[in-house]
Simulated assay, not measured.
Amino acid sequence: MRCTCFANFIDDRFYQLTGTNKIDSTFVRSIASCRLDLRRFGAKFSNNKERPYSLGHEREDVVRYRQDFVEYFLQHEYNYYGLTDDVVPQWIAPKTSPTILFCK
């Protein structure tokens, strides 16, 4: 979690819990203080050198599997819940009995 995100989270929760309104753009807890907090919690700030999620993503078999996976869902989209692209999205219910998708 980046320090700015952490500071935003603390800021949002503070005003939510206290029921008060924010009057300026400063954070309740500064970004520098959040960085120190994260270090105390054991966070380490370093470059991602290994890139575990992108290694091999361009291999021919991986690309083919990804295309087959997406094509399967597009062909069976009527089995899944979806959302409209409207300004205020609405749920689209499946036309047949829904398929349950488990993700690990």
Rank of each mutant, 00 (worst) to 15 (best):
S33F: 03
I92S: 08
V88Y: 02
A7G: 00
A7F: 00
S54C: 10
R13Y: 00
S46N: 10
F6H: 03
A43P: 01
T4C: 10
Y80R: 04
F14S: 01
D85T: 13
Y65R: 15
I10V: 07
T20M: 15
Y80A: 04
K104V: 08
T84V: 05
Q75V: 03
W91K: 09
Y78N: 08
S97G: 01
K104Q: 14
I100V: 02
L74K: 14
R51A: 12
P89L: 09
R29P: 01
R39V: 12
R13I: 00
C5D: 09
N48G: 12
R29I: 07
D86H: 12
D11Q: 06
I92T: 08
V70I: 14
T4K: 12
H57G: 10
R64Q: 11
I100C: 04
I23D: 05
D24E: 09
A93V: 14
D37K: 01
I10Q: 02
G19F: 13
D86S: 12
S33T: 05
F41C: 12
I31A: 00
N48P: 05
R40A: 05
Y53E: 10
F69W: 04
R66A: 07
T26M: 06
R2M: 11
L83D: 07
E77G: 14
P52C: 11
N48M: 13
A43F: 06
A32P: 04
K95Y: 15
N48V: 15
Y81D: 05
F73G: 06
F45S: 11
Q75R: 12
F14Y: 09
K49D: 02
L83T: 04
D12S: 03
R51C: 13
D85P: 03
L38Y: 00
R66C: 07
N21R: 14
I92Q: 07
A93K: 15
T4I: 12
P94A: 01
Q75A: 06
K104P: 02
E71Y: 10
G56N: 04
T26G: 02
E71I: 02
L83Y: 12
C103T: 09
P52R: 10
Y65N: 10
L36W: 04
M1Q: 08
K104W: 13
V62F: 08
N8I: 01
Y72N: 06
C5S: 13
E77F: 14
S25Y: 04
D61M: 07
D24G: 05
F14Q: 01
H76P: 03
R2V: 05
I100E: 02
Y80Q: 03
Q67E: 14
I23F: 01
Y15K: 03
V28M: 10
G19V: 10
H57D: 12
K49H: 08
L36D: 03
F14H: 03
Y81C: 06
